[in-house]
């Protein structure tokens, strides 16, 4: 199967011995929009870092876009990294270049695209997040909401099939959050979104996966999971 995530019995421990993933299994089909819920420390962020090979599992399988990520070649890894657009929680970590242009162009440059194509990608990606006027700005002058949009543009410019977002609405004011949800709603890519924002999940994401203790504890249609108060309560979540 192509353009999708398949994770099977994934185990991972950090060098200090902390076990972050303990047999996680999940899959995302092409075109799906899936929420990843769970309390802090459930292993969501660690799982996300496996999807493009930044972390290597202790054991288990990770297939993304048909590629066996932990065991693939360098060129296949580059393909995976282009296919998976990872948007980190802190936009200040994601935006590491002096100007907005440099940041959005970073991925395409490392994909080895010719300059004219890089420029076109930057223009399209910024247009997609409605930030075209900010191309020459320096990142530290932007608001949190603007930074989050640019952060999404930095991966859109790589034309990914799959967007993986870590806490996209965290730290936004209500208007910023609303604008970001509009943007996510418009984007056509397959999505996996790690979040605590259950109201957004209900509005945007038809399927929900709940993690706790490094494994998946629930997986199903969002309306069923959000209706199950016992389940939500057991995993530190609150009904929106």
């Amino acid at each position: 199967m192509h353009h999708s995530i398949e994770v099977e019995d994934l185990h991972f421990s950090y060098p200090d011995g902390h076990v972050a993933l303990n047999g996680a299994t999940l899959s995302v089909a092409p075109g799906e929009k899936v929420a990843l819920l769970g309390p802090n420390g459930a292993g969501k962020s660690t799982l996300i870092l496996h999807l493009n090979g930044i972390l290597k599992p202790t054991s288990g399988r990770v297939h993304v876009a048909g590629i066996d990520v932990p065991n693939c070649s360098k060129s296949e890894l580059a393909k995976v990294r282009a296919a998976v657009g990872l948007v980190f929680q802190q936009p200040d970590d994601q935006l590491f270049s002096p100007t907005v242009f440099d940041d959005v162009a970073f991925g395409p440059i490392y994909q080895g695209l010719p300059e004219s194509e890089v420029r076109a990608r930057v223009r399209d990606a910024l247009a997609a997040v409605k930030m075209s006027d900010y191309v020459d700005r320096v990142s530290h002058h932007l608001s949190v909401g603007q930074k989050k949009r640019i952060a999404i543009a930095t991966v859109l410019s790589m034309k990914p099939d799959l967007l993986v977002l870590d806490e996209p609405t965290a730290g936004l004011d209500p208007r910023g959050r609303r604008e970001l949800m509009h943007l996510l709603h418009e984007l056509p890519q397959t999505m996996l979104i790690s979040t605590h924002d259950l109201a957004m999940v209900r509005e945007l994401l038809p399927r929900t996966i709940v993690m706790e203790g490094g494994r998946v504890v629930a997986n199903g249609p969002t309306n069923e999971i959000l209706a199950d108060e016992v389940l939500l309560h057991a995993h530190g979540l609150e009904k929106p």
């Binding site: 870092l49 493009n52 930044i54 580059a78 990294r81 282009a82 998976v84 990872l86 980190f88 970590d93 994601q94 590491f96 440099d102 162009a105 970073f106 991925g107 440059i109 490392y110 994909q111 300059e115 890089v118 930095t154 991966v155 790589m158």
Partner: peptide, 16 residues
């Protein structure tokens, strides 16, 4: 991590 996720491989590349 954020750089690696966008293909950074240790070599510094930029536009001409």
């Amino acid at each position: 991590d954020a750089m690696a996720a966008r293909g950074y491989d240790g070599e510094v590349r930029s536009m001409r």
